[in-house]
Write a protein that binds this DNA or RNA. Structure first.
Lengths: 197, 197, 197, 197
DNA sequence: TATGAATGAGGTTTCATTCAT
DNA sequence: TATGAATGAAACCTCATTCAT
């Protein structure tokens, strides 16, 4: 097995374990067992436990960015692009609960633990949203007075809070489609009744 | 000093320490020192470390619910009510960074750690939003097709993600007012350019 | 309530609690609760936890000595005296399981913990046996080559080990009477088949 | 060093420390220091402190059973067998004071602490006595009316109480030989003067 | 590279004892 | 005398990390 393979095997194992137990409750030996390597082997690929967490983000979110970017590239309409982002995000979070939990919980932990960890990949991911909004503004589809820097957080926050509930409660009140539909309505048209007739 | 006072003194100390270090990195002795009591004294008021965390939520969010409810009671307009909620929430999070961090980080931790902790007070808090939306729907101000159960999460998630950034980054790109204005525009009118003229 | 009463109330409570939980697992607050006094009150009557244990011995065994001595005083026959001692001891241990356990377990603990605790009352109790033996030797009923100092321990040890089993196992294979009969046979006549005919 | 060696090294260290301080006063770090391993190492071999105590019994008494059984195997006479048992027991207790104390004190503690610990090895040890008695009864050497189940406890209790005194008092009033002689006289022939002439 | 036994620092919790009331 | 809230020392146990093989 190549080094890169083992590295990624550990990353995946760690994602699973962090998701299940949380960063602090996860033991290195749990990750080692999940990855089927010896405890000591982990330290040949990572500096310490925290380094694993950071790597999990970088790799998992990195691949998320890749997938989403690819999906978006074939769609020119900024409205549709936003919907695609939401769909891909929620679908992924529903499918990959491990990743979902790691993002929801550990993202916050880690942001706190090391101020100098810039969440590069994560920023990149969020910035996909603002890029879409800017594009829409250039095309006069999105209101010019919307600040992409705030809107991207509002949009991501909305999606994240919804998928958070999916993670902790077994029942899923609303389907992905229902949710997308609601989110798009709210973010595109707002909640007010429109009296345009 | 009365028992109730000491209880609340420990709660406030714990909020501070949890915010600064996170639940897992916080030591009981940190909380004790902050509260100016002996380590053992804490166990006269709480069963264990986790019980402190739960209590912090219940009490801090409980008082948040109280304040917000009071503010809302004097305003009949559902549009304004939503704005008041956003304003009070963001203002509080900006002012009380400890509480903000505890909500953002530990809320997620605890939800994960004990599935049977129903986050009663927190649910109550979030439900203020859905109650406002329902009221607005009855008055035909908010669209009937908006599902309050989803919208409340979207709205809270948006606010929470924004205040999360405030907590971790020292620079404050946007003021509370700016942010409120953006959030209200998005949630009430949406991001699309309206061609009603 | 007089001081002496409270003192003895605590002693009895302690005997109960020590028997149930053992000295180390017993908490002062357990004893206080059992005695229906405040924790601090105990320290008005005893110097520390260990002092309570010593006092329990002195008092409980003291009263045992008194009772046994009284029973023995009316019986002149050394053979019967020994039987009375065995009967009283086993009956008491069976009736007062608390005392039994305290003797069996804590006697050994305490003897170890403080070398300078001479178990005065306990020695006095054991010496009742050697006194009986000496009396019997004077009357040429007991063999002159029996050393009372060893025989007293053998006799007490035999009784104690038997009552120990009673304490830990719920089933009581043998009755007190059966046991006495066996013990007296062994100690008086030995286990060998006698070919005197 | 092999794992088995380290296991046994810890057992011996624990026996020593428990004997010296008693189970409750013994600290894990005491045992670790005595065994010249790190505190944590102990938990690679034992589940918890109590598990160490149980293991000490099983191992130490197990080897006692082995030795005694071996000594007995070459002696056919039930009278001599009993004497051999007493001699080996008392000799061992005098030589290995640590083991003696652990048996005397902790045997009682542990029997109390966990009702479901059956003291397997210890029962096996005691049952050596009843087996000898039964053998003697078959050969019409020991009285048929002696109940081996009671007699075994009486015999063991007698030996144990005597060795208990050896442990706690430095002076040794009686030698092993003296004691054996007394014990055998009592248990075989009883204390009564025999008028067979 | 890989292993996994060993390390030892560190934290939660308990509880005997004190002391202000 | 009596109380019981407060104290704070102490110990079991965990687990990230190391290192000899």
């Amino acid at each position: 097995m190549k080094a890169a393979d083992k590295h990624s095997k550990i990353i995946h194992a760690a994602t699973k374990v962090f998701a299940k137990k949380g960063f602090f409750n996860a033991r290195i030996s749990d990750i080692a067992k999940e990855a089927k390597v010896a405890d000591g082997t982990i330290y040949l690929y990572f500096n310490n436990k925290f380094d694993i967490l950071i790597s999990v983000f970088e790799e998992e979110i990195g691949s998320l960015v890749e997938q989403v970017t690819k999906s978006l590239s074939v769609e020119p309409d900024p409205r549709k692009k936003l919907e695609i982002f939401a769909t891909r995000h929620l679908t992924m979070m529903k499918k990959n609960k491990n990743l979902a939990e790691v993002i929801q919980i550990e993202l916050r932990q880690s942001a706190k633990l090391i101020k100098d960890y810039r969440n590069n990949k994560f920023s990149e991911y969020i910035d996909i949203i603002s890029t879409i909004i800017k594009l829409g503004q250039e095309q006069h589809i999105y209101r010019a007075d919307i600040k992409p820097g705030i809107a991207k957080r509002a949009f991501f926050g909305a999606l994240d809070e919804i998928s958070r509930i999916w993670s902790i409660s077994l029942e899923t009140e609303y389907s992905v489609d229902d949710t997308i539909s609601q989110i798009m309505t709210i973010f595109l048209s707002g909640m007010l009744v429109t009296h345009t007739e």
